[in-house]
Design a binder for these strands. Structure first.
Length: 488
RNA sequence: GGUCGGUUGGCCGAGUGGCUAGGCAUCGGUCUGCAAAACCGGGUACGGCGGUUCGAAUCCGCCACCGACCUCCA
């Protein structure tokens, strides 16, 4: 009944039958966040996409080792090899230790992920905890002749690599084109070629995050961390490497080159990339400054939001689009997702209370088959969700006695809904978000009544309301045309 | 400029040669003291122009527009 899972492989640009290298084990590596700021809506997409994959693989009885890293060093600003380390920069701005920044935003990320009901990965390695492995790898790439040292830094020699291997195999990029398009900058760089990338960088005297190495004190390049950590926990070759499409080049291309230069084999059997979330048709991103953090979404405190949206609404919003399509954010789209999800939940409540009938008028098997087909077709969650909505109509019709199911089939349908809606799509009913919204609205309502009383000069009532609310821990501030409130 | 992808009804978003998802909004109805909610139902969209075909949103060509990557980004 479960059928065969087909997944799109960025490497071959085709949907391919999934079959693990070492059945029933599956090695899954996903690029996690660089922890120098709060997670935004964009971060939720790969997390949820690969959470869906993780959950489905588990359901299919695979033994999945899921590794998702935390990048806490080596990720530079601006130019990949000249900018300041992102974490260090944030630490400097906030006058904190880099590791305090790392801890703060790692915690924040974990909280957000928990709220989104994203299962924690089996291993969550940090780059700074794997310096030795990275140094070892750089040493071996050097020994194999695919890197060179300059002034305390080590760079990957793309030209040398290209003599024997295909640099650009993943991204489809052609080195000659890159050469043709690379003007200026040559000469002023210690790299031999502009497209060479850093494996190890010498730390200048102001650089805080530094480790000893055979080439002097320095820190690892961004790409090498993922190669070192994935190979450490998943072996030289593993099943699936995932991440955002924006990491395809250069990050993932470089990972392949590093692994091949190291042991002659590509690291991952298949690559999966989620598409971007857009806002007004443009990519949502830190550098563009048009992002909305998850915290802002959950609290509603953002100029583009009319209200708070629960984590489950965000999750559902993301799952309503296929992971390889761009998904356009808007307040309106979020409201639509919220209502749709609520309808699905309330339909499930109806389902649970249905009584068996003496005959069945609905093909539960067919329904199950269609649900699996959707997932097997490269994790087509929107089609799965559409299937579930077919159920919504059915449940109401059954409630009115127009349709019916025998006991065994009814139970099966309940189980299927439980499986697809909750276990695999990872949605869950919580009232937290809704209650928060209700709470805020109630306070607003009370203060509206107070404002009316004030307008009518009924100061006894208006003061009574303010005093009582103050006692309860609210701070009320009257403004020119209304009020503001906060809760201590 | 190079590489890749996209353009679907008011909005979000599937699909991919004929069976023309789904959600939200809207409109009509049931229900209801009124309203809301809930439920039922209606509305047949695929950037433009050509071509292939009995038949194209779906294949091919050209054009237009948008975006991603090429520099950090999930």
């Amino acid at each position: 009944m479960q059928g065969n899972l087909f997944l799109y492989n960025t490497l071959t640009k085709k949907k391919e039958l999934f079959s693990p290298l070492n059945h029933p084990h599956v090695g899954l590596y996903v690029c996690g966040p660089t922890v120098y700021g709060d997670a935004h809506l964009g971060h939720a997409r790969p997390a949820i996409t690969f959470d869906l994959l993780f959950r489905y693989l588990l359901h299919l009885d695979y033994k999945v080792r899921y590794v998702r890293n935390i990048t806490d060093v080596g990720h530079l600003e601006n130019d990949a090899d000249e900018g300041e380390d992102k974490v260090q920069k944030k630490a400097r701005l906030e006058q904190l230790e880099p590791m305090e920044i790392v801890q703060r935003y790692t915690n924040s990320y974990h909280n957000n992920m928990r709220e989104l009901n994203v299962l924690p990965p089996g291993i969550e390695p940090r780059a700074s905890g794997h310096i030795i492995e990275q140094i070892e790898m750089v040493k071996e790439i050097l020994a194999n002749g695919y890197a060179y040292e300059v002034n305390g830094s080590v760079y990957f020699d793309v030209d040398k690599y290209s003599e024997k291997y295909h640099y650009g195999i993943l991204s489809g990029r052609i080195l000659e084109d890159m050469m043709a398009n690379t003007r200026e900058l040559e000469g002023q760089d210690e790299k031999r070629k502009p497209w060479d990338f850093a494996l190890w960088k010498k730390a200048d005297k102001d650089h805080i995050m530094r480790w000893p190495s055979p080439w002097g004190e320095g820190f690892p390049g961004w790409h090498i961390e993922c190669s070192a950590m994935s190979s450490k926990y998943l072996g030289e070759q593993f099943d699936i490497h995932g991440g955002g499409m924006d990491l395809l080049f250069p990050h993932h291309e470089c990972e392949i080159a590093q692994s091949v230069a190291w042991h002659g084999k590509e690291p991952a059997a298949r690559w999966m990339h989620n598409n971007m979330i857009t806002i007004n048709g443009q990519k949502m991103g830190k550098s563009l400054g048009n992002f909305i953090t998850l915290q802002e979404l959950f609290s509603g405190r953002h100029i583009l939001l009319s209200k708070a949206f629960s984590p489950m609404t965000i999750r559902f919003f993301i799952l309503q689009a296929h992971y390889r399509s761009t998904l356009d954010f808007s307040n309106e789209a979020l409201q639509a997702a919220e209502k749709g999800l609520e309808r699905l939940f309330s339909a499930f409540r109806v389902l649970q209370q249905l009584k068996p009938s003496d005959k069945s008028t609905f093909a539960v098997e067919e329904f199950e088959k269609k649900c699996y087909e959707a997932l097997n077709d490269d994790l087509n969650s929107p089609v799965l969700i559409a299937q579930l909505f077919e159920g919504v109509k059915l449940f109401h019709s059954m409630k009115e006695g127009k349709d019916g199911l025998k006991e065994a089939e009814l139970q099966k349908l309940v189980n299927l809904f439980q499986l697809f809606l909750f276990d695999i799509l990872g949605l869950k009913e919580t009232n937290e978000g809704a209650e928060n919204g209700v709470f805020n609205s109630l306070v607003d309502l009370i203060l509206d009544i107070r404002l009316q009383a004030k307008t009518k000069k009924d100061f006894q009532l208006s003061d009574h309301i303010r005093d009582q609310l103050t006692k309860l821990g609210f701070e009320i501030k009257d403004t020119k045309d209304g009020y503001e409130w906060t809760r201590k």
